[in-house]
Design a protein around this nucleic acid. Sequence first.
DNA 1: ACGCCCTCCTGTTGGC
DNA 2: TGCCAACAGGAGGGCG
Length: 275
Amino acid sequence: MPELPEVETIRTGLATWLPGRIIRRIEVFTEKLRWPIAATELHTHLTGHTIRNLKRRGKYLLWEVGCGHLLIHLGMSGQLFRDDPERTRALHDHLFWILDDGSRICLHDPRRFGAVMWINGAWEDHPLLAGLGPEPLESGFDAAYLWSRSRGRKMALQSLLMNGRVVVGVGNIYAAEALFQAGLHPTTPAHTLTENAAQRLTTAVRQVLHQAIAQGGTTLRDYRQSDGTPGYFAVSLQVYGREGKPCQRCTTPIVRLRLGQRSTYLCPGCQPPPC
DNA sequence: ACGCCCTCCTGTTGGC
DNA sequence: TGCCAACAGGAGGGCG
């Protein structure tokens, strides 16, 4: 489940060698992802052009190419990696980019929740990106901001953190981990967040994301860095996926609960329920 | 504006 | 052993 740390890890991995490469051709095998891949449009705007830079906005990866950007989202199970051009196409390989140095990039995505699309001109104005909240690792995300965005909202803090219009890049795993670190229960109504708790929570979000990036992300099953190696943050998870196991801070068994259609995890000892 | 729920998809898991 | 339902979830979109 690529969240911000996983996408950032892929971005930095590709950024060491991909800028400067010319795209010789692309091969699209599956048009049916989250939105249909416009193969002809991609071919027109990518073939023969140089990849100048790699950027990230939330969980979106952006390749700066020609007069626009290639937007890539990895959804639930997407992998983007430097590939051996001689390797035979495998099931769920959806797109190959063949480059001028003889290398290849592969997009592999079994669940096909991912997306690849061309954005002409400024990406900031694109409908998918225009309404996004601040980057959690940049200065726009601080205690005063989160506190102000929590006013008048009944939704659970877990949902607030996962709302891309409030803050980008935080999915189920890192929301649960940050709430644990801040000592806040996931179902706490947002409007009851104190300024002090908002400070703890923004600090926790930043700390958890920084740590996860330093470990190369969290590999539960599918996720790999762009060179094929797994991420190592899974061993650092305090609550996510640890139902029934003892809290490493207070030994209380970790609890799983349903929040809407999703699971979240918490330590009843470290995260007392809201009143 | 808010917040809940549905939808897309496939691999894995667990119950019978 | 086989079958099938449940589950995993990012995030847009619909609706009350």
